[in-house]
Design a protein around this nucleic acid. Structure first.
Lengths: 196, 196, 196, 196
DNA sequence: GATGAATGAGACTTCATTCAT
DNA sequence: AATGAATGAAGTCTCATTCAT
């Protein structure tokens, strides 16, 4: 009687272990042993379910993107007005509510740093980013159209918004005092308001 | 007859070695031996001039800030109009010209990631950031005043600008395709224009 | 109602798995998991049918000897003249025809190396070697007798022949260019001719 | 005052450590730690002087070849007659005298087995073999010429001699009882005598 | 009989730091 | 000041073997 595979549960368990450890120590210093401990598993088992440490990170990046997309879709579902929808995108990223998890932000920025030197991580990171960015470009285009403006600068504008969001992530981790509490999403939306 | 100290030249040499290696591999993977090699020195000498590997990073963070401030002052020196001065700040950060060095950006983002988990690095990073951020807040305030607007949102606005800049740094390293070439500083300035 | 045992089929399957993997990677680097995969079985099953990894090797050594003896008997069956029979022995070992399998040679030499340090493997290897060597000594004796020569040097001669064969195996794996194609068995037979 | 490099002494020390351990356990089971211990060094130091375990083996193969060539040249120096010189080649390989070291033979055969699956080791092994084999071909050619025979079969004959030698090595390790003591070189020379 | 998860020891390798010279 | 050898801890990964199902 074959034993049912539990690889996907275990993998998620391990990814959550990395999420926890990496938020604290960064990727490089998250030893496989520590990740295993955080996941409540034996060190050997990690390599039974993942071929290498790096592949856990790749999966974690996906996992973070999944969470974001889900959150985004929840907020977009009920909105019609282009302006509202764009605002919802920004808030899904920047709102610090019960759902949001600072560990996720820390891992995300850590993954970005890792992407800087590892091509495989870079690809995963880009593709994860793309999942929210493609939607953003479209939302910007809608908003421009709704106000009768040219959609030409849509990509540049989307890039500016994305950059702001990523930058807020980074600042919230490294220099939170520089960002007045709660100002992030409202200020960014204000800037957009001005332009549109 | 003691030899004349050459510690400060040597330290700069070593800092430049780290700049080079870290841009390629990240901080954690920059071995002291590799840094020494890049600096044209022996591994032992590194620890003669620095107590620990981390102190090289602390010094590098300062070095990066020095470069930025210098660049900033050069650009601000000749400008009077508040709007121009604010634009100069943005361009000093985002312009990709002969002076700018992608390795510096890579190290800066790497340092940010490192600051996430090491308090001492965090302090150095915050203080380096502060050196350009304090000026930014003041420039924003000037610009608001020049247009007869309240200076109340100055800090929030400065934070948004800073976030955009940091985010552009991060995106330029991890997903350059998302940012239309040359759009960074002009788009950000456009957003500010809209608001002011 | 116990299931009928299929251990012996399974064991052969596993031995063939080792033959395949070991020819490629050597014994030490042939993981049980890889052997199982090559055999189309699960890792756990290997240890159900064999107490330890080493016992697969012991069985493989026997298996290789079986193949050789079978081949030998096929060739000897129809020959009467002592000279021909000795030549048949040599050719059974050295001919590279459709029946011969380079993987077997690789495993054989790998087993020899393993025998160097593991007494149990050494015993199995010696006993496998003996199965073809005993016959060889006898064939040499016959050949000497047939020419009216003393049979005293039979063992030494047989050893020389055996050494040549084993050495050709080794060279064919490590330095095939040193051995002109097809020269092995004819040259060795030529040397014997000269002596006899 | 720079410290004088001792890398080459250390490397030799480490190679001798591998010689010792590998003769006993084979290459794969010779842990770097055990090699270091045998060499009287700390484990870390081994990797300071060698980039990887494998490179120690490459160096050992060279070392073994050096020893053989030296021994060979000593024996050839004083001989003129082609027949004697060929005999000297054989004896330099097979004589078991005070100079000869069974550990070297064990390592040599182990290296051959390793060459079977590692291309870099294979190259080193082939090149080491070539150092004695090139001379052998020439000696055979001389001997044939001296007796007014065609030198055409020189390469095949040399291969047969080389194979015998390598085979005697292998048998002496795995089945010494099959080879009557002291018979190796005299029997092989006898075979050559018969042909020439 | 069969599966595949689980374990834990041990392998190779890297590296910050120390120290004799 | 400077060199480069030396150390020892820690990291990633592999794997024979065991065991619940």
């Amino acid at each position: 009687m074959p034993r049912p595979s539990n690889t996907s549960e275990r993998q998620e368990q391990i990814v959550l272990g990395l999420l926890e450890v990496m938020a604290e120590r960064g990727y490089e210093r998250s030893s496989v042993a520590a990740v295993a401990r955080a996941a409540g598993l034996s060190p050997g088992l990690v390599h039974y379910h993942f071929p290498a440490k790096r592949s856990i990170l790749l999966r974690l990046i996906d996992y973070l993107a999944d969470g974001l997309v889900e959150r985004l879709e929840g907020r977009l579902a009920q909105l019609e007005a282009p302006g509202d929808r764009l605002a919802a995108w920004v808030e899904a990223h920047l709102a610090r509510d019960a759902e949001s998890d600072p560990r996720r932000v820390a891992c995300w920025v850590g993954a970005a740093a890792e992407a800087t030197r590892d091509p495989e991580v870079a690809a995963a990171f880009r593709s994860a980013l793309e999942r929210s960015h493609a939607g953003l470009v479209e939302l910007v285009r809608e908003a421009l159209r709704a106000r009768g403006m040219s959609t030409r600068p849509a990509r540049s504008l989307a890039a500016a918004i994305q950059a702001s969001v990523q930058g807020y992530f980074l600042l919230s981790l490294t220099a939170p005092d520089a960002v007045p509490a709660g100002s992030a999403s409202s200020t960014l939306l204000g800037l957009l308001e001005g332009l549109l």
